[in-house]
Design a protein around this nucleic acid. Sequence first.
DNA 1: TAATGTACCCCTTTTATTAATGGTACATAT
DNA 2: ATATGTACCATTAATAAAAGGGGTACATTA
Lengths: 126, 126
Amino acid sequence: MEIIIDIEADAPLFAQLIEQIKNAVLSDKISPGDPLPSIRQLANDLDLNNKTVAKAYRLLERDSVIRTKGYRGTFIHPDAKANSAIDLNDIVAEKLNKTIENLKSLGATDSEIRIAFANALNKDKN
Amino acid sequence: MEIIIDIEADAPLFAQLIEQIKNAVLSDKISPGDPLPSIRQLANDLDLNNKTVAKAYRLLERDSVIRTKGYRGTFIHPDAKANSAIDLNDIVAEKLNKTIENLKSLGATDSEIRIAFANALNKDKN
DNA sequence: TAATGTACCCCTTTTATTAATGGTACATAT
DNA sequence: ATATGTACCATTAATAAAAGGGGTACATTA
């Protein structure tokens, strides 16, 4: 599996990493059960910060594309192929589009929607 | 009708203005058909910028609390009392809360939700 | 001529968030 | 000892938006 990170690309580094690992799963370059490099190892190979790789791994784990087993390392999830085809961000975008369209039809301005959104997202953060 | 603007308050100036005019309507200090000061006049009295007052009037007009009649001035809307009790922002907040709760239950992070939201709101702005 | 609401233009300050980085530390188990 | 994922503390630069201000101009009509 080759991973190429383009520092000049528009997409954030962690997002490039996620995309490439998902693509590797989808094209059978890596299969369920295969081990992945450790966070520190991959960060070193790609000349990235540990945190950047850790963030990608954390999101891949959330989406059940990989499984982390503590000190034993990180492995491809049994359902990785199916889960790699699902992009949670697409679902989020679709639901937000519908809600926003609805609010605009009520006459709400962009500014009002933005402010209400910020409040809603931060409401349980005191 | 007395309007008191507190420059030190948390709420934006235009929002204070909107709130006080709505309250004046709800407490019958002003009634449907009554004339309001012109934008320039009120801005001068309260020592606010024309734009700040114009913004408040624009939103009050959208919510049918006032009616502007061009060069003839601005008046309280016939349905002002009922419409002053409705706060579009409450409706917006409620709908956004539900959508966000839904997205969080799917595992989406705050950051992902914010980014998708920004894209959704700006999508027809090219 | 004067006043009305309205619509543009550009500008400043403040605030918030993202993305990425750096450092330190922890329990775990080989 | 060493390596694993992870969790904190923090900072930086880039980007975006809100709020407000300043100016200029328009059609309308008393």
